[in-house]
Simulated scan of single mutants.
Amino acid sequence: MKNDFDVTILHYEDPSEIRSGRIRSTQVHFHPALDRERRFRMPDQDDAPPIKTIHFSLGPQKLFIGRLTHAAASVDQRLAFARVMEDLERQGVTFRKTRVTPDDLNELAGSYELLIDASGKSGPLAPFPVEPELTPFQTPQRKCAVGYFKGVAPVRPEGVSITVVPGVGEMFEIPALSESGPVTVLFVEAVPEGALDAFKGVKTPQDFQNRMESILKESFPDIFGRLDPGQFSLADEQAYLLTAITPVVRRPYAMRNGTLVLGCGDSAILADPITGQGCNTASYCADRLYETLLERRDSPWDETVGADYWNRVRTYVKEVTEWTNAMTGPLPGHVVNMLMQAAADQSAADKIVHWFEAPSTAHAALFGT
């Protein structure tokens, strides 16, 4: 986009502040997102540990190891965002360090032909209307506890490990790259008030580390057995996060003071991270947004452009959202049967793991579409 349009980015942090701040996500970029990043010549993630498999356990029982069609990667967003900002600035993109509020939109609308609201989980800034059919929940379905750790030996073959404890929650183990080198992301998705909802009262990095170690010992002995007691620690004092997300999908366009505002990423489409699709959906939508603007660059940027963009992404958003929302509830019986079949059939295991690369296949498996 920087080569086709005059772009100004408004953000309240500079790269050094992002690098030294709190972690933001459990991001895994599957190969379609990585392919888009290469196509747009974004800084590569080749130095991240390659994620080629997904290990799946149901309670204490290891069911299968599925193979991704292409390697995925996870890079601490503090490092990734800082790299991208520095790369864009070198290429002449204008950055303004400022914190934008909804009250600023009218003034900004008078200064730009188009506004893109990518304000993330703290947004939206623009009055994007909620899509009721894709927003069934009014409260968080999980409480999330995320830490980036040193001193955890990886699963073999190295990849993502998912353990589902029915009625209680999930544990995700993800090899990633942070500023300090390779780390292991330990991510608890806890059903509220259940046994894994155990991080209440955590105030310090040491509290978080101690609580995570206790949970591993009590509920995830396989991971606990791979800890090096002398090395197990948070990667840095900001390498943990506690949050709870209420999933919501908004129509990603609105007019403000005569100027079109488009939404991209969590500001418009906010999903529970249980299926690892947040950054991948944002990447897909950003690509379709660019495509829309490029094709409509010689026409007025009005609500018809917003509707065009929404039409291009709506099916994908619907499939991801309905799959993700279904995973926060009890697993449907036919899905449990698929998982059990995958325990004895490598091709079935690979097909399930492919869901994460191609959400439409997950949606079809769950809903028969």
Rank of each mutant, 00 (worst) to 15 (best):
D14L: 03
A198P: 01
M212G: 02
K200R: 13
D345G: 04
M340L: 15
D302K: 06
S111W: 05
E179R: 09
L115R: 03
L196Q: 00
E89V: 02
C144E: 15
P32S: 09
P332Y: 15
N325T: 08
S283L: 02
Q231K: 10
T243F: 12
M42T: 11
R67S: 12
A254M: 07
G201H: 07
G110Q: 10
G169D: 01
F81D: 03
I51A: 05
G263C: 02
D236W: 04
L108A: 12
R41Y: 13
V185S: 14
N106T: 14
A48I: 05
Q91F: 06
L88V: 01
G21W: 00
R312S: 09
D14C: 01
T315Q: 15
A145H: 14
F172H: 12
L216D: 10
G329H: 09
E319C: 01
L227M: 14
T8N: 06
R67W: 06
R251C: 05
S360W: 06
Q91Y: 09
T98S: 13
I245A: 01
M212K: 03
S233G: 13
I23H: 03
G306S: 07
S178L: 03
A72G: 06
E37Q: 13
V320R: 02
V130H: 01
G306D: 05
T94Q: 15
G258S: 10
R78D: 00
L242P: 00
C264K: 01
L177M: 14
E13Y: 00
P157C: 02
A254I: 03
C144L: 15
A358L: 14
T304N: 15
F199T: 03
Y12G: 00
